[in-house]
């Protein structure tokens, strides 16, 4: 892909006039934004606004009610399941069903879209798996069972699994919940370096707005009736963050890029 399209500013994920929700309940409509190759972008907004629904819709876990989602110019509903799995990987909030796997086995499952009907690993698969393991510094844990891991370690393993899937886009649903400050920063910095080093597009939902402002290339703010998508500093200029929470409770300090509690 890189050879045929050397253009750096290449749009990989394009969302156009998307309506999300469930059969009889619209959650959010008219969402449009585009993320470029190698960008790390966050989706922020208050609880229940539809961040996860949006992420699940882009991840094709639930159907879009209207509008289009394109990956590299192709509408995702027209892609085969296996092709989509080669373009887009997920890290979800739900815990995995079986934790009696070693870290390596779990990461190897990320190679499923590429393996044969038995799921045997080839040379390329093994290479990608070990790359993912060393990128997330999991070498010393490779043979540990998943039930022995801490939350932060498990999250890194899940990211490694998505990385081993070797997709253009990695979607993560609240990757920093249940983690302490240090591990939150560690995960977010990792996501940024994954995006910049591997030229994969990383898109995640988060409540860590202050960290996202410092680390992300782009931020999508869901406000209910409208949404803004831009670089963090431009969003600050446009006073986009100030509308996020009720002003009498929390106010946004544009100079430091942090939220202050109104006393």
């Amino acid at each position: 892909m890189d050879i045929t399209n050397p253009e750096k500013e290449h749009t990989i994920l394009e969302i156009d006039d998307l309506t999300i929700g469930y059969e009889n309940k619209k959650v959010y409509s008219a969402i449009s934004f585009a993320v470029k190759k190698g960008e790390c972008a966050a989706i922020v907004g208050v609880n229940g606004i539809g961040k996860s629904t949006l992420l699940r819709t882009i991840g094709h876990l639930q159907p879009a009610l209207g509008g289009t989602i394109k990956i590299d110019g192709t509408v995702i509903s027209q892609m085969s399941m296996n092709n989509l799995a080669k373009r887009l990987s997920l890290v979800l909030t739900e815990s995995i069903a079986s934790k009696n796997m070693t870290v390596k086995e779990l990461i190897a499952l990320g190679r499923q879209p590429y393996t044969n009907w038995m799921g045997s690993l080839g040379e390329m698969d093994i290479k990608k798996i070990s790359e993912a393991i060393s990128m997330l510094e999991l070498n010393h844990l490779a043979d540990t069972k998943c039930y022995e891991l801490s939350d932060g370690q498990l999250q890194r393993v899940m990211i490694a699994r998505a990385l081993a899937q070797d997709t253009d886009i990695i979607l993560l649903d609240e990757p920093t919940t249940h983690l302490d400050l240090f591990h939150k920063v560690q995960i977010l910095k990792l996501l940024k370096s994954i995006a910049h080093q591997t030229k994969k597009t990383v898109l995640f939902t988060s409540h860590e707005i202050e960290m996202a402002i410092q680390l992300c290339d782009k931020i999508l703010i869901l406000e209910g009736d409208k949404n803004s998508f831009d670089e963090p500093c431009k969003l600050i200029e446009n006073k986009a963050f100030e509308r996020l929470f009720p002003l009498d409770t929390i106010h946004f300090d544009a100079t430091t890029g942090t939220f202050r509690i109104q006393k």
């Binding site: 991840g59 094709h60 876990l61 085969s80 399941m81 296996n82 092709n83 989509l84 799995a85 080669k86 887009l88 990987s89 997920l90 979800l92 739900e94 815990s95 995995i96 069903a97 499952l109 990320g110 499923q112 879209p113 899937q165």
Partner: peptide
């Protein structure tokens, strides 16, 4: 889990 299984194609 099913969601992950689906995301693996």
């Amino acid at each position: 889990g099913e969601n992950y299984a689906q995301s693996l194609g």
